[in-house]
């Protein structure tokens, strides 16, 4: 199996620093977070510019060029609900070190994003939902199959689709956790790739507990086959867990210094 793919989540407009930097086109805070995440072992960086209804195309173009110019065309996930902004980002994206990831499509209104991915030789995150959270795994798998068929119609390679089963918060939805893990297993058994916003599961928990919950969940999900996640790579415990799981799963060769790599 391939090594776990870490998509760094820290360039996100929900952070006031990043939102301000995006608004003012101030490179410094964005490059700082990009650098930290790359050094911490991110394989991809997510660039979330929010809904960006006003100037999304301009913002995404600026952000993609900024990060790729500074970090040797580092691979990125373009994250916004604004389709035009994603198109604009793809136009300037350089894929010599990895295809762009479109974040995201779903089985509802964003089904046409698969076409965009196919046309631009990009990867795509496919949310297993139509409107809101799927009620059970039957629904999840039905959406996944629907999206897979559509994407393949457009000529996509299934390898380039990262299925997101939608991670649910433990506090309040404790009874649903095993089912999500089961969905990862089912998707993996179909030979499909998976991803998701892992830290969702610890939402609302105290900050000192969250990394523990995220790490345990990552380990369990990786055993079910989870092949990537959108996480904070600067979270040491979580990264250590992921690397160790990669070693145990024989995705990377052990050496005494494996945690430093």
């Amino acid at each position: 199996m391939d090594k776990f793919m870490v998509i760094g989540e820290r360039i996100h407009c929900i952070s006031p620093t990043i939102r301000k930097a995006l608004e003012e086109r101030n490179p410094e805070p964005i490059l700082k977070r990009a650098k930290e995440q790359i050094e911490a072992g991110a394989t991809y960086l997510d660039v979330n510019i929010g809904p960006a209804e006003k100037d999304g195309e301009e913002v995404m173009t600026w952000a993609v060029k900024l990060i790729q110019d500074e970090f040797d065309n580092f691979p990125l996930a373009l994250d916004t609900a604004n389709r035009k902004a994603i198109e604009a980002g793809l136009k300037v994206y350089n894929d010599e070190n990895g295809k762009a990831i479109i974040n995201s499509a779903d089985a509802g209104g964003r089904m046409d994003m698969f076409k965009l991915a196919a046309e631009n030789n990009a990867k795509i995150i496919a949310l297993c939902s139509k409107d809101g959270i799927p009620k059970d795994n039957d629904e999840r798998m039905a959406y996944a199959t629907e999206m897979l068929e559509k994407a393949m119609e457009f000529g996509m390679d299934p390898e380039d689709i990262l299925f997101d089963p939608l991670f649910l918060v433990v506090k309040g939805m404790q009874d649903k956790q095993t089912e999500v893990l089961e969905a990862i297993k089912q998707l993996t058994d179909m030979g499909l790739k998976t991803t998701g916003g892992l830290s969702n599961i610890s939402n609302g928990a105290p900050n000192d507990i969250r990394p523990i919950m995220d790490s345990a969940y990552a380990a369990m999900a990786m055993q079910c086959g989870l092949s990537s996640a959108i996480i904070n790579p600067c979270e040491k415990r979580l990264m250590e867990t992921i690397k160790t799981c990669d070693v145990i799963k024989n995705n990377i060769l052990y050496a005494d210094s494996y945690l430093e790599l």
Partner: peptide, 13 residues
């Protein structure tokens, strides 16, 4: 095999 990798890492560091 693990030492082979480790030694490269150490030399690199």
């Amino acid at each position: 095999i693990n030492l082979a990798k480790q030694l490269n890492v150490l030399l690199g560091q």
